[in-house]
Amino acid sequence: MSGVSLKPRAPFEARVDMAGITPVVTCALTLPELERLAVPFGARSVPLAELFFIEGAPEGVLLIEIGDARLDGVGAGMDKGELIVDGPVGAWAGRGMSGGVLRIAGDAGDFLGAELSGGEISLGGNAGERVGTASSGARRGMSGGTIRIAGSVGTRAADRQRGGLIVIDGDAGEGLATDMIAGTVSVAGAIGPRMGRGMRRGTIFASALPDLPAGFVDTGAHELVAVRLIARRVPELAGVLEGWESTRRIVGDTLMGGQGEVLVQA
């Protein structure tokens, strides 16, 4: 694989902010420049080469050979290219991404894909709280792109999400899709309590009927052409929606005037 690889010199004693170290940046710099690149490390700033062995040519893929839960902001701000992490990452991975591909083999901390507007994040393990959500104080969460999670996610995933797709192969914690504005979420496992509170629009595909707030109304079972269309147009959901002939549609949060929907195979 051509590109730049970063291999930690030792387990990190403090958190590292990797935001801005993207394939575009590593391609634009020479290896000596890359080695001198300053990164926040705990309360100070250090050259990248102090933390990582840096190898390869400044082109193609950026590889972090051994992941670490103290690596925050991995892939944050990416707009193109491919970043691969062989292991876990910390918080804020893929924050504000607008393009490119971020592949993480292990777990991720909180705020994975926060404010994502494009591109694709693929996670091999579990994610922490607030996947695809908004940063503290921001009004809107992810607006585009795709987050695919092989494991489970913590609380408040898709909080204030206004577009894009989150596919969770495992379980989702409490408060999924709170204040969701638009977009699509699929959960193959169990969904925690109090999902969808304040949901305005958007679609949740659930494997079983979740515990919903009082503002959700069951409209019954329907043959929805839209489900067939999504199954064919969205490869990530083809397996999830296979065999869905009839769909139970629950609409909410009507207490907020919302028209979001939870779709469950009938």
Binding site: A182, E223, L224, V225, A226, L229, R233, V234, Q259
Partner: peptide
């Protein structure tokens, strides 16, 4: 009551009708 869904660069709409939904 119309609902839109954007997939990639394409947006489609769902219109509730008496028979069900028009996509």
């Amino acid at each position: 009551h119309q609902i839109s869904k954007k997939i990639g660069d394409k947006r489609f709409w769902r219109l509730p009708v008496m028979e069900g939904e028009f996509v």
